[in-house]
Design a protein around this nucleic acid. Structure first.
Lengths: 351, 351
DNA sequence: CTGTTAGCGCTTTCAA
DNA sequence: TTGAAAGCGCTAACAG
């Protein structure tokens, strides 16, 4: 027997399976008997390549299950084919709808997205954007951000950014927003037209831009209808169900009289709805209710919710197209659909 | 005047702004008067570095706003610090909760995730996994996948994979599932204990593993309660609200008698609820209703939904921890919490 | 403790 | 049309 010195490292043989060694472009080249550049050219259509070499290469690629290493490609080309998305809440139907739009907008472009959450907080948001930038994302979409325009602009000269919830337009940054004030105006106006005059308002989180604008719209609608503003009818919510429930509870505890409530978003409205149910108050027979957002679930509440529809999905698509345009240095144009009142079954004429 | 030849390329000067040129590690080294390796060592804590050099480097990093290029790092180290998540629906409260768990599990690890959707379809799912692999993700989490175990295993020898909804355990793949059958059993059992004997079942999509198992649980509960199985009480849904609504509608159209309905998931239950509302049937007074999932919204439906709680968030965390362990070659152990019945207000004793 | 050197896997001049 | 060679930004031996 020949004494072969055993390898010094003990490999867990059992672990090997049929582990396919990830093949590289060089492997393919070797296998096909051509140079790496030729393979690259075929992959990218960068130059004309003779038919026989092409087929040889294709065969090798097929056989070796080769797929170019995107990190290497990215490093070389300076493009990661990845965009970053900053949301505020990783699990909220609100952001979901928008993300669906983004996803569809990215379809077929070769781009993938990494989603991070700013958790409704400027510090964390900044942090996350830094991370995305270090990952060399090719662009960033900011959904309902909490940053100042100046900060955005700062970041935007590293990578293009498009942001919802703000007006902005430079060579590398685009922002667009919906008319929250007018949306709220429409909601309250609808209620007024049904004869309501004591209309409560469940606000969003304090200092939240959208929420504040909705409050303004509420006030304006009252003013234009010659209804005196009563701040005891305005009660604090937090854009969540629990906030809405607590808010209306508070209204009852302080003995307010009202025939309708307008909630700053649909989630709050759901909470309001539950509170009313608990008190045995019928919707819309006793009290009318209007939300804001038109979440996918809002057509299936009991009863289906009257609300202001935000074009969430479209915003995702539009933001994506705009970002792609910015990245490619193409002209951007963003035509965003307006808010609209969706009358379902939680509102009715006051008796 | 000296005639200076104009540059051949016309640069859009206006575009330049204060564009900070992304600095590299080499820039930092030069700036601090040390070698690149020293900078790298400081960044990675790979070796001891004298205090003065360290401070010089830190200063340079600070000053130049340097952040290491992750693509270069990744290429070199063979780790992208990115994991891939495959969901089936980019905007569903079901996946959201799980994603939140994943997100929390990743917190502080330096990993980011790219989320892709298989759209409930094996072909697309395979395609997406290929994409993730080409992106050199360090591991993959598969949520409610549609692939066969063999396919998973195949992929798993490129990168570790953990999957929900299947039992699996190799060196590079882990799968775990909840006991859907037992969950359904508990739901129906609860109804039976309340005196119900005519219990309708709204199924999930056909050939969907979880859905099928829930049907089996439904049947078993009936059998063990000596209630004859009546297939006219079992009607097809699709895990969406609309399916639930249509299903119950069908029940009425075919004149079935029943006092309770068990929906294969919460979304279906919402649809059932709406159908009942439209018919003027009270829940739970006239008909009891049980769902499956316990989505975040289910405690705010009207009335709050009795359902089988899936530990969605925990599954996300557990899957993440397991994947991280697989990636690092550590031993994995997954202790998953059980399903449980959450009794809320859509069920009551039959009169 | 620190600098030099050689790549990671790919693309892209530059010549031929 | 095709190959050789340089290099994207970083890390990891290997000397010193």
């Amino acid at each position: 027997m020949t004494a072969v010195p055993p390898p010094t490292r003990t490999l867990p043989l059992i672990d090997h399976d049929n582990a396919a060694p990830p093949s590289t472009l060089i492997d393919v080249a070797r296998h096909a008997g051509v140079s790496p550049s030729t393979v690259s050219r075929i992959l990218n259509g960068t130059a004309k390549v003779s038919e026989d070499k092409r087929t040889a290469v294709m065969a090798a690629i097929e056989k070796m299950h080769f797929a170019p290493n995107q990190m290497a490609q990215g490093l070389k080309k300076g493009r990661s084919m990845t965009i970053g998305i900053v949301v505020q809440d990783i699990s909220s139907p609100f952001f979901d709808e928008t993300l669906r739009g983004v996803d569809d907008g990215l379809k077929g472009t070769g781009y993938a997205s990494v989603i991070v959450s700013g958790h409704w907080n400027a510090v964390e948001e900044t942090e996350r954007i830094r991370l995305l930038l270090a990952r060399k994302v090719d662009g960033i979409i900011l959904l309902s951000g909490h940053l100042g325009d100046d900060t955005i602009l700062q970041f935007a000269n590293q990578r293009p950014i498009v942001s919802t919830g703000r007006e902005l337009r430079t060579k590398s940054a685009l922002g667009f927003k919906l008319d929250n004030e007018n949306g709220a105006f429409m909601a309250v106006r609808h209620l007024v037209e049904l004869g309501h005059r004591r209309i409560a308002f469940v606000t969003g989180p304090s200092h939240h831009r959208d929420a504040d604008e909705r409050l303004i719209g509420y006030k304006r609608a009252l003013a234009e209808s010659d209804i005196a503003y009563d701040d005891k009818l305005v009660v604090g919510g937090d854009f969540h169900e629990s906030g809405g429930l607590l808010a209306v509870n508070h209204l009852f505890e302080t003995n307010q009289q009202f025939t309708a409530v307008f909630a700053a978003n649909d989630l709050s409205a759901y909470g309001v709805r539950l509170c009313l149910y608990r008190k045995g108050i019928r919707v819309p027979d006793d009290i009318s209710l209007v939300g804001f957002d038109d979440l996918p679930g809002s057509s299936y509440t009991t009863p289906p919710l009257t609300t202001i529809r935000q074009p969430l999905y479209d915003m995702g698509r539009i933001a994506t197209n705009a970002l792609l345009a910015l990245i490619n240095g193409e002209p951007v144009m963003a035509q965003i659909p307006p808010l609209e009142l969706v009358v379902r079954e939680t509102t009715r004429r006051v008796r």
